[in-house]
Design a protein around this nucleic acid. Sequence first.
RNA 1: GGGCCUGUAGCUCAGUCAGGUAGAGCGUCGGACUUUUAAUCCGAUGGUCGCGGGUUCGAACCCCGUCGGGCCCGCCA
Length: 532
Amino acid sequence: MHWSDVMAQRLAERGNDHIIATGITPSGEFHIGHLREILTGDMIARAARKAGLNATLVFVVDNADPLRKVYPFLSQAYESMVGHQLGAIPAPDENGEPDWDRFHTEGWTYGDHFLKPFLAALAQIGVRPTLLPNLEAYRSGKFADAAKKACDEPEVIREIIERISGRELPDQWFPWQPLDSQGSLDGLTVTGYEFPTVHWTDRHGVSGSSDISKGEGKLPWRLDWPAKWGFNNITCEPFGKDHGAAGGSYDTGKEIARFFGHEPPVPLTYEWISLKGQGAMSSSAGNTIGPIEALELVPPEILRFLIADTKPSKAIDFDAGMGLVNLADDFERWASRDLEAELADESLSRRQRVQLEDAMAALALASPDETNQASSTSVSFRHLALLAQIKTDDEQVWTSLAKSHNLSQPTDELNDRLRRMRTWIASPHFPEEMKVNIRSHPDTGALAALSPEQKGVLGPLHDALRACSWTTDSITAALKEAAERAEVGMRDVYRASYAVFMGAERGPRLAPILATCDQDAMLDLVNACLEA
RNA sequence: GGGCCUGUAGCUCAGUCAGGUAGAGCGUCGGACUUUUAAUCCGAUGGUCGCGGGUUCGAACCCCGUCGGGCCCGCCA
């Protein structure tokens, strides 16, 4: 059974109505790792609906979290805002300077700045979660009940965290982080409490008090999370493996949730996505691929397929080079099969059956449109990559596909694919081995590998090409003519031609590529090969 | 120290929850196709399931141990 269906089954045991939560802190650029969080949630929600349950996907925006430090993309002006809540400070402009103007006139915050493009990427990929901004939840008092329970009995919370996480909390620890006189969550000492007020002294020596029912501060993460489960009625939540460890925040959260008076959600721990050959993604190391960037290269259904087809417990090594080609072709292969018919075969072994069933589920989840199965475009990624390189004009691509694949009209899907393909080809991720490279000098190694008959083609080839009018058809005819004159088969002509023009044994169909090259340059190349 | 995830064919992985002949795709090799858009079709190749014990008629799967990789036990999500 597919992992999403296993989750749906678990949810069904618990009830009929479900809210599946995801949550991210908008502290910087989002990356494809964050996409796994959201897509995992989305796929659970879809599987639950498929199983007949009511399921909603929500996205908790953790904009009540503080700015941790001045990140490399921020100016020093942010120094004074470290410790301040992400939903309460201005967004950086293109120079990393705080944009106070937009902050004051539009209320445009740091959190909004990073969230907006991510949401746009999500919409493209077919995910439209209900947003739950956390800071707003605090300000409207949604945390009040949980905060009261925690502050009334801090020793209970302390005991849970110390016992389960195995670490000792400082003596002055208190289950509420107030905002200080400057708006920071850092460096305060709580000096007293009587509901709803927490009294404090900050690092500037100022004393004051916070109303916990008005969001003048926040719960520490380990309480914040279970509190949200309660008032949002969360029944399921996927989270990164960091939260999932024994003694981690889910472990303490489970017990704290029950103390608050509700059952914790059904968990699902997922592994990280790293970039091929570069280790874990890290914004500071600059080795990220943003979800927006990824979607400029990868069709949405293929990105979804990657997540759907990989069990959450498996780490993903994302490769925007050859790995992407293989992934896409893998997707196409599955999509073009009639799995339903294959499953009807009674002689399948249990393993084969499981494999087909899982692939079918993954394929369904890959479609950005929940109501429509992703379909095969019947044009392989490889092939499109080739056409996009050879044909500069989209129309020429469609003309070619009309001939080779019987495509009367390019679908929207194919139009999208071609657009992304062109972006990919222009990007540094496009793999060298996929590039169509016409040689400027003879490749002596490739020439040496030719048989005497094949070498004998070069002279006639030169003559035939010189005489031709340099169109695709005339070049094809010239190749044939070379075969006749040299008295060899076409196979030898192609072997020789690929050695000359591409330094390879085989390659994509030559004539259309040569037609886009300069005739004299190609003739010189053949000549140079004759002399080599 | 405590714990989680992970290790199966050259590569990516499925199969482990419910023990029953070791699986898929890619790659590689061979054949077919007398113009080949890295094509397509057919066939073949390929694994002491990290290692060592145990339970069992039978273990990739369950138990114990061990080794390698990743991660957590921070007011970090």
